[in-house]
Design a protein around this nucleic acid. Structure first.
Length: 462
RNA sequence: GGCCUGGUAGCCAAGCGGGAAGGCAGCGGUCUGCAAAACCGCUAUUCGCCGGUUCAAAUCCGGCCCAGGCCUCCA
């Protein structure tokens, strides 16, 4: 039984999808005006864990991740480069997808672009106008919060206490109520970006795209909607208002939000300039799998303070984990140890029990590390057979559908090197340790490490 | 000002009423021809501070301190 902490009810709740065994999942995606930083990727890694774990538990998951390719930042970015909005955002979408691949983020079933769903947005706005939830003011269209009594139910915000920001956009002065939000922005000729639609010439506000694209691909009511905590208000609050006002139905059952990535104790953000992009870290030589592991290994609702030191720790963990996995290759014993199967079952139960509990990853990983230790003990005692190798590998591969931290390398050695290894083994048997050590050193310089085990000599590439 | 989160060993991080998981790093040992890997042991009499409730609190309650977030675009 899976439980999730639902921001809407502020409680952990048993998860039960609308349609049995099918989960419809909407995850707020990037605004493609620049490189995403790893704070952004924390959210996407969390969503990846959610996506993969639901599949691991036997659900068919239909996942949408939107691409915001029209807003102030993308428009300004394209303008300053002197290229079209499309050309500009295409560039960053391509980079974003490459970054996702580096972090092994499973591609969502749909990655719709806002600019390709203007009609769907217009339809919702028309409904809202017709039902009296929206109004025109000076060519723009706003949502009237006062018409939607449950406004604030997600964020728990008290409308009367909202402090109106000092920076107020010019057309926001035109709203009936400062707290109302824009659905459709009247054209600004100088921006050079607009659509001619039934509701006028202009471009969409930010929030409406998520309502339009989620409902198009997932239906008017769906199971899970995720994002960073900074999206709770106003973005998700507004999505609920406009969607539920338009359809009269409950929009989303479970709202999951992940905490921020901090750097030196502060939120990592573009505006603070304290961010690392994935590329920054890769250029410094860090392993993307370790970055994935680091972002994955802290519970998603806890703030994660990012440091290069913790990334180095993560690298070691990933390295050890992979060496364990690869080291399973060699084992000469014929006998089968039934205890190992029991330990695998125990580890699997732990893994599922904890991840079922609101994706509580730390103890879930802990149960895997306990298994590794047990296996190592059996291994070094020589109580580990060939079929045990197979079952442990299969288990590690199975949970790797969720974790995705195994680095499968095409590992093969040239004839020459294999012969050298054989030669060294022969020398060792003949107690010619000088020669054996020489060969070991030669191979070490080529990045091939040798380890003598009770089962024979094994090698690994650095 | 309102709402919210976190403060557990050198670092990261579980536990949320009754034995302080796990990872990384370090030290000592076992194994090994030597290594490597692995294993064993050690590394928090104590969980930000002060009170309270309780037979019993890291866990509940009250107060305080520190750090951070949201209330404006933001994952």
């Amino acid at each position: 039984m899976i439980k999730f902490y639902n921001t809407l009810t502020k409680r952990k709740e048993e998860f039960s999808p609308i349609e049995e065994k099918i989960v419809k999942l909407y995850t707020c995606g990037p605004t493609v005006y620049d490189l995403a930083h790893i704070g952004n990727f924390r959210a996407y890694v969390f969503e990846d864990l959610l996506y993969r774990y639901l599949e691991f538990r036997g659900y068919k998951v239909i996942r949408v991740m939107n691409i915001t390719d029209v807003d102030d930042k993308t428009i300004n970015g394209a303008k300053s480069k002197g290229i079209s909005l499309r050309e500009y955002t295409d560039r960053y979408i391509k980079i974003f997808i490459e970054d996702m691949e580096r972090l092994r983020l499973k591609k969502p079933d749909y990655m719709p672009r806002a600019t390709e769903h203007i009609n769907e947005m217009v339809e919702i706005i028309k409904k809202l106008l017709k039902k009296g939830y929206a109004y025109y003011k000076d060519g723009s269209i706003y949502f009237s919060i006062s018409k939607f009594p449950s406004y604030g139910k997600l964020s728990g915000i008290d409308l009367s206490s909202i402090k109106v920001g000092a920076r107020v956009d010019k057309d926001e002065y035109e709203k009936e109520d400062v707290k109302d939000f824009v659905l459709w922005k009247k054209v600004k000729e100088e921006e050079g970006v607009w659509w001619d639609t039934e509701i006028g010439r202009g471009r969409p506000g930010w929030h409406i795209e998520c309502s339009a694209m989620s409902m198009k691909y997932l239906g008017e009511s769906f199971d899970i909607h995720t994002g960073g905590v900074d999206n709770i208000f106003p973005h998700h609050e507004n999505e609920i208002a406009q969607s539920e006002a338009a359809t009269g139905k409950k929009f989303v059952n479970y709202w999951l939000h992940c905490a921020h990535l901090l750097v030196n104790g502060e939120k990592m953000s573009k505006s603070k300039g304290n961010f690392y992009t994935l590329r920054d870290l890769l250029n410094k030589g860090y392993n993307p799998i370790a970055i994935r592991y680091l972002l994955l290994s802290t519970h998603y609702r806890d703030p994660l303070n990012f440091t290069e030191n913790s990334l180095k720790q993560a690298e070691n963990t990933v390295k050890n984990y992979n060496e364990f996995y690869r080291g399973l290759n060699i084992c000469g014993y014929e006998k089968y140890n039934p205890e190992i199967k029991k330990e695998i079952e125990k580890a699997k139960e732990g893994f599922i029990e904890y991840l079922d509990d609101d994706l509580n990853i730390s103890p879930a990983l802990s149960s895997i590390f306990s298994l590794i230790k047990k296996v190592n003990i059996f291994f070094s005692k020589g109580e580990f057979g060939r079929d045990n190798v197979k079952e442990v590998r299969e288990f590690i591969e199975d949970i790797d559908k969720v974790l995705c931290i195994i680095e499968k390398k095409e590992e093969s050695l040239s004839e020459d090197i294999l012969n050298l290894i054989k030669e060294r083994e022969k020398a060792r048997k003949e107690k010619d340790y000088k020669k054996a050590d020489e060969i070991r050193n030669v191979l070490k310089e080529k990045g091939i490490m040798l380890e003598d085990t009770p089962y024979g000599t094994r090698w690994k590439k650095n």
